[in-house]
C-alpha cells in the first residue's frame, strides 16, 4: 500500500518512468496468467487421461490449485507489494480457520 508520490522536478520525465514501470508489471501479470493457464491444462489433462492412479492425481491437482491461488493473491491481488502485512494477517487467519473446518469435517464428522 506504499503511496509513492511524484518528487521529480520534471513530472513528465517521472511520468515516462512510471509508465514504463507499469508496462513492465503488466508484462509480469501476463506471464503469471500464462503459468496459471498452463497449470490448469496439466490438471485437466491428468484427469482426462483416466489412466493415472487417483492417489497420485489428487495430491498433484491440489498442489497445482494452491500454486495458482498463490499467483492470484500475490500477483493479481498485489500481495507481493510492500505494506501488505495486515492484509496477509487477515487472509491467513481466514485460511487457517477454513483449513481447520475442512479438516474437522473430513475426520471427526461422519455420516
Amino acid at each position: 500500500m506504499a503511496n509513492q508520490q511524484s518528487n521529480s522536478a520534471n513530472p513528465n520525465l517521472n511520468l515516462e518512468y512510471r509508465r514504463k514501470q507499469n508496462a513492465e508489471e503488466m508484462k509480469h501479470q501476463v506471464i503469471t496468467f500464462s503459468m496459471m493457464i498452463f497449470f490448469t491444462l496439466i490438471a485437466f489433462a491428468m484427469v482426462a487421461m483416466e489412466t493415472i492412479s487417483r492417489w497420485f492425481i489428487i495430491p498433484v491437482i491440489l498442489l497445482l490449485a494452491v500454486i495458482q491461488v498463490i499467483f492470484q493473491l500475490y500477483y493479481f491481488m498485489h500481495m507481493k507489494h510492500k505494506g501488505h502485512e495486515t492484509i496477509a494477517l487477515f487472509i491467513y487467519s481466514g485460511l487457517t480457520v477454513g483449513l481447520i473446518t475442512v479438516l474437522v469435517f473430513l475426520t471427526i464428522v461422519w455420516l
Binding site: 487477515f90 481466514g94 485460511l95 477454513g98 475442512v102 473430513l106
Partner: peptide, 14 residues
C-alpha cells in the same frame, strides 16, 4: 475477504 474465505471453507467442508 478473510471472512469470505472462512465462509467458503465451511461450504467446501460440508
Amino acid at each position: 475477504l478473510g471472512g469470505e474465505t472462512v465462509l467458503f471453507a465451511s461450504l467446501f467442508a460440508t
